[in-house]
Amino acid sequence: MLSEEEISRLYRVRKTVMQMLSDRGYLVDDSEIEMTRSQFVQKYGEGMTREGLVILKPSRTNPSDQIFVFFPDDPKVGVKPITISTKRMADEGVRRAILVVQQGLTPFAKNCISEISSKFHVEYFLEAELLTNIKEHILVPQHQLLTPEEKKTLLQTYTVKDTQLPRILMNDPIARYYGLRRGQVVRIIRPSETAGQYITYRFVV
């Protein structure tokens, strides 16, 4: 049984997750993002559990490319819930998943994720990280992922190798939000005091 406080937390987390999926290019209905707290309570009922919140969304461009979002019940997630989740992913043919955990993963669980990374791409977030959507923070400028063609033209115009671009780490909060992979390039559009708007690029490492 979840307390009121926890329900509010979950509501906020779920909203951010929905926004995140939408930003990543998955098909998310506006009503799911705009959902109010009372609607949320209504939908998941009184006996709400974390497990019950699980989300499955297809990509906007390629419907067969789907993503799972799991909300494991244990505060500190071990290997077991991960194996259960991967089994479900295997059953439904989904390759990507996000784990939203309360306190973190055990070291074994982390190992487990990296072991299966060739088959399943599993990311994990803490609930605390998803309470507010950092993408909307005033300090964070707009990020856009470049397509491979765009990346190629960019490298050509500046005659650089991709390693010579400014970088962003893969475990950067924003990179994690967008689920960036090594080798991709993001365009960052910053508001600038001098020029009004300034465009820069970062290479994901």
């Binding site: 990280e129 300090l139 780490l169 950067d172 909060p173």
Partner: peptide, 8 residues
């Protein structure tokens, strides 16, 4: 940097 990223 840890909470909002490198750009922030």
């Amino acid at each position: 940097q840890h909470t909002l990223g490198i750009e922030a």
